[in-house]
Design a protein around this nucleic acid. Sequence first.
DNA 1: CTGAAAGCGCTTACAG
DNA 2: CTGAAAGCGCTTACAG
Lengths: 359, 359
Amino acid sequence: MAVPGPDTGRRVTAVDVAHAAGVSRATVGFVLNDTPGQTISEGTRQRVLRAAELLGYRPNSAARALASGRSRIILFVLPDWPVEFRLRHYLDEATLALDKAGYSLVTYSRPGQVSRPLWESLNPDLVIGPTPFSASDVASMVACGVRQIYPDPNRPGGLDLSLTIDSGPELQVDHLHERGHRKLVFAALAGGRASSLVAARHGAAQAQARALGLPTLDLKHVDHPGIVPAESSTADALTHSPTGASRTTGKAAPTAEDALRGWLAAGITGVVAFDDDAAAAIAGAAVRARIRMPADLAIVGHGDSPLATMFVPALSSVRTDSAARGRAFADFTLHKVAGRPLPVGRLAPKPTVVRRETS
Amino acid sequence: MAVPGPDTGRRVTAVDVAHAAGVSRATVGFVLNDTPGQTISEGTRQRVLRAAELLGYRPNSAARALASGRSRIILFVLPDWPVEFRLRHYLDEATLALDKAGYSLVTYSRPGQVSRPLWESLNPDLVIGPTPFSASDVASMVACGVRQIYPDPNRPGGLDLSLTIDSGPELQVDHLHERGHRKLVFAALAGGRASSLVAARHGAAQAQARALGLPTLDLKHVDHPGIVPAESSTADALTHSPTGASRTTGKAAPTAEDALRGWLAAGITGVVAFDDDAAAAIAGAAVRARIRMPADLAIVGHGDSPLATMFVPALSSVRTDSAARGRAFADFTLHKVAGRPLPVGRLAPKPTVVRRETS
DNA sequence: CTGAAAGCGCTTACAG
DNA sequence: CTGAAAGCGCTTACAG
């Protein structure tokens, strides 16, 4: 009888390990899963472990999922909007922490209408995303046996663990305030798809401005040719031309430089940018308009992307500890799948302002 | 007897559908899977389809995978290096095309040493990555029953479908050549992790320079404070300070501006950048050194990232049709899982140069 | 301390 | 044209 192994075609199963170790199949499972409530003699344990190692045994996860009813897979549905640069650190840390607990993290960016969303083929134990799922998505997940969904469709209103909001906007406002700026605007790129996130960050910045006794902090949209607009929001759009010359716009939109000068004329001296892309677009327009930074206009971005250090002038920006947030995410997830209540008083990692040349 | 459905806790199975449609369980499978070689009467077919629809039946993918031995999952292992901005378009298109054929695409960025790599929990039919897998990874995949691995570990040497190399470097050289530049360098950021990709692109650029009768195109590494170096490559490093003032470097490295002037003094007028980050770092140094672009120095990036349009001056860059490449990837994958040979003469989508202000 | 056995929900020859 | 039945490789009460 050929011993199954890396050489033969057939995959090694628990039966093979049981044979090799001279025990029953169930015992193999007990040893390998550290099943509680079983008392296995140390000798048996070692024999099983050694046999499994020797044969290169890997449990078949489909069989395991079918028998146990749990896949040990966590599905993370990525947001629609461009993901921040540091998401990878975040996910790497979360993956590591979940792996230690025996879970696998799968990230999913769902394009348009697929016929089989990933939760259908993966049978995840838990699905989590940054924004609420549509009713039909929830129904589909439930039909696929997903036990836990976050944000919880039964308690709409918000995430238990905020993946999208940090205290960045507050910090941006504080920073500009400390440096003597009083009249601020909140600026985002027109055509970005993260409208809910823009609104949330703008709201947070506004609240902080109010708390500091500053005037109302308006939301301005900044056009940029590199960005394809999703919906036109021409109201307060600021058009930016890459060359300052080759403009073919039909509408008589003000040039970016003119608009910026308008801001300055209105007494605005500080810009809270939604993200570093918006900060760069505005800083670029300021460079072309020969507006001095930070003397005439101060700008603080959000995300601390490579763009912030690359840009000339280098962009001040808010940095978050992505790795710590990734671990917090894993922590949240593990508590949920285990059905344990979340410990109270856990601290979200605090972001910091990295000051560079624009503030 | 309660009819199982969205309301009851129990998940709907094929047995429920069979009951509702008044047929056997096997027939349900035949209808839903369009099993070839079965002749089902139209009436039966419709009854089954309607019952499945009504009950919201979703096949249990774990059971299906266990019984059939195929998971219909494709695992895409992301490269180690920062992924290009347009990867998302690429993956979205690939996901869509694979979905149509009944397959799911899962992307995987593996952090450090996890105890259970994703191919262990997913049982993918095929694993594909941009660079060859280590021997231990291959062994692990084989032990987990992965049938197909690309790049093929048995035929080392390269990908059948190039995910990493396009004809971008050739185009960059052509573009600079057309615009009258003769002495060029190839520049990458020091500390980037994509060393194999840097070498490949540099090689392609060099070959094209040779074909055009240009002098040898050296590889230069550019330091940038925003990038954490993986390995030090101090040999020909170019240090870039974000403020031009607050430098605390111990070593007496030349300033970025000085180094750039060195290039100019050596007669170099064109830079083929590995990616847009490298292009931006060099363009930024040029701005600070008051070197005119493209009059004194022309730069062409690669990837056409948002950075290229954001930067001042806006960066010329090579753009690839990511969506078309994503479809080509799906096509490749589907041929492989079906065991069909790849049609010959398929064309990789051709990239183009987007000329902006640096060339 | 260990094993025999049922069951998870499918697929797939095989038999009518 | 349709159904009865074995089998995929696990987990998990249950019985010794």
